[in-house]
Design a protein around this nucleic acid. Structure first.
Lengths: 182, 182
DNA sequence: ATCCACTGAGACATTCATGTCTCATATGAG
DNA sequence: CTCATATGAGACATGAATGTCTCAGTGGAT
């Protein structure tokens, strides 16, 4: 059966991204299961949202791990991070939209942990002299996520090619839009 | 009385940003009026959302006008745009979160018009040689809005000083995070 | 072939937001 | 002062989503 929690969460996320006000029934249909089964898996909308948020943060944390951001130059670390982040940009977008999750301490802590890791890498880059020091490290970290989410939306709406997304995010983040006089 | 549609819309927006699932009653209370009066002003949630979206886009378009983005260098134009955009970043955030408005042709058209203007400016900058040509002009336009929204959230949550917001957005957008050697 | 666990479909009561209404009150114009 | 307008408070019915339940069917394991 396609009653994998994995599959259900993914479909639920895409459905909720498409229409945040979706009813439990719509979500169930989108996942290809009945409302009763959805209820057995996640008793209530809150439980679903929580699982969704936790899953999303898991994905993000896994991406940060896979990018091995603590290794090498900060710039390259950010490149790898964005590369790993883009495939799950939709999940990220869900996290940004679901403000209800901001009150859950568990979610909040996980988010702060992730942001802290990225911020630390940026700060090391600043100390090493490869990253600008006139921008707060935390802001750079948040900007990376903001750009990834924005690019994800553009991809979803067909304004940006999926294979181009990682490159344009990284290039904009690292180099800015102004042309450098060689 | 404080039954200005202006005031009501502003309070409704901040309330909906804080909690998108707010009931009409909560919104009314947040605006300092009764549910009945809110209903007289905007018959139904859809009408309110539509007015809110229209108002937000008005603000954005006014900001683009005030920035006179068609004048001068593209980089400076983007600087002025961000300066005008930041004060209404919350409204912008609402627009990004309210996916239900994407189906309204009126809203969609206004958004496309704004995005088109910014994209055109960026494209001129590319032709003039001041803006990188390896990034799609439309992406640069959207990135500007994404960063503005992200900075707005950071300001709201206290992670970024309000007076710093315009600068960090512009600097990141134009110059990127890597330190320029020279 | 039999049994077991799981699912889908649907009924059901409950809660909540919504839309509409009435009425008393207050505010402002004339 | 008087009247008109608009607001606030609340009652009321309606509809939708939710949570819980039962029951029949399905598919896989033994």
């Amino acid at each position: 059966m396609s009653t994998d929690r994995e599959h259900v969460l993914r479909e639920a996320a895409t459905q909720l991204i498409r229409r945040p006000a979706s009813s439990m029934d719509e979500i169930a249909r989108a996942a290809g299961i009945s409302r009763a089964t959805l209820h057995r898996l996640y008793p209530g909308r809150d439980a679903l949202a929580l699982a969704l948020g936790a899953r999303a943060l898991e994905q993000v944390e896994a991406a940060v791990d896979a990018a091995r951001i603590e290794e090498g130059d900060a710039g390259d670390a950010l490149r790898r991070l964005v590369d790993e982040l883009m495939p799950i940009a939709e999940f990220l977008g869900f996290l940004y939209g679901e403000n209800a999750l901001l009150d859950v301490p568990e979610i909040d802590a996980a988010w702060e942990r992730i942001d802290g890791r990225v911020t630390a890498v940026v700060r090391e880059g600043q100390l090493a002299g490869t990253v600008r020091v006139d921008l707060p490290a935390q802001w750079i970290s948040e900007a990376a996520f903001s750009l990834a989410v924005g690019a994800g939306w553009s991809v979803r709406d067909g304004r940006l090619a999926r294979r181009e997304a990682p490159r344009v995010v990284v290039e904009l983040l690292l180099g800015g839009v102004l042309r450098r006089e060689s």
